[in-house]
Amino acid sequence: MPRVAAPNDRDDWLGLTDRQLPITEAYEWAVIPRCGAVVLFSGTVRDHADGRTDVQHLTYEAYETQVRPVFESITAELRTRWPETGRVVLLHRTGQLELEESSVIAVVSAPHRPEAFEAARYAIDALKEAAPIWKHEVWADGSDWGTGANDIADPRNVRT
């Protein structure tokens, strides 16, 4: 899977990659003159999960051909709810990730901080609820698919 690169011709940067997420580049790409606020959320691999201790690593799998259309639906809904939004980044890792690695980022720029925070919160919540991406957890005594899984949601129905 190739490295994800910032687009030159649009204000949404969406993708999956099996490589390290370009967090600094995503933040810098989201900064534009008409927007005075940029919110960056990075989800990292932690050492525990619901009822499980000593998580050692995660492996993410995705239904790759469906992820981009879902990400596009999320950004379309985000721009409907917050029409002044500047740039949006939704990037997710696949493959095996170690503790403290970033698995997902959501970056949103907007003219003002309330809208940037609200839109970024929506972006990550919608991604978690709507994108066909699954995690497999490995811990000291075993492994299993991640806890807290839910049915795939329509991004228009995601509430924050």
Score class of each variant (00 low, 15 high):
M1D: 05
A5W: 13
P7S: 04
N8R: 15
N8G: 12
N8Q: 14
D11Y: 00
L14S: 06
L16S: 09
T17F: 07
D18A: 14
R19A: 09
Q20E: 12
Q20P: 08
P22H: 08
I23S: 00
T24C: 04
Y27W: 13
Y27I: 11
Y27H: 04
E28F: 06
E28S: 00
W29Y: 07
A30W: 10
V31N: 10
P33T: 13
P33Y: 01
R34F: 03
G36I: 07
A37W: 05
V39I: 15
S42E: 07
G43E: 03
G43N: 06
T44L: 09
V45D: 13
R46A: 05
D47I: 02
D47A: 09
H48S: 13
A49T: 02
A49Y: 04
T53Y: 04
T53E: 14
T53S: 13
D54H: 15
V55A: 04
Q56A: 06
Q56I: 05
T59P: 00
Y60C: 00
E61C: 09
A62P: 15
A62Q: 03
Y63G: 09
Y63E: 08
P69A: 00
S73K: 15
I74D: 13
T75K: 11
A76P: 08
W82C: 02
W82S: 03
P83E: 00
P83N: 06
E84I: 00
E84A: 15
E84N: 15
E84P: 05
E84C: 03
R87T: 02
V88E: 00
V89F: 01
L90Q: 13
T94Y: 07
E98S: 12
L99P: 08
E100M: 00
E101V: 04
S102R: 10
S102I: 01
S102N: 07
S103E: 01
S103I: 14
S103L: 06
A106C: 15
A106N: 14
V107T: 08
V107N: 13
V108E: 09
S109Q: 08
S109K: 11
S109G: 07
H112A: 11
R113L: 12
R113Q: 11
P114A: 05
P114I: 03
P114F: 00
P114V: 06
E115A: 14
E115K: 01
A120I: 10
D125P: 14
D125Q: 15
L127N: 12
A131G: 06
I133D: 14
K135H: 12
H136V: 04
H136I: 07
E137F: 02
E137I: 05
E137A: 04
V138N: 13
V138Y: 14
V138T: 14
W139I: 02
W139D: 15
S143G: 10
G146H: 08
T147D: 07
T147V: 09
A153Y: 12
D154R: 06
D154V: 07
D154S: 11
R156Q: 14
R159E: 09
T160H: 10
T160S: 07
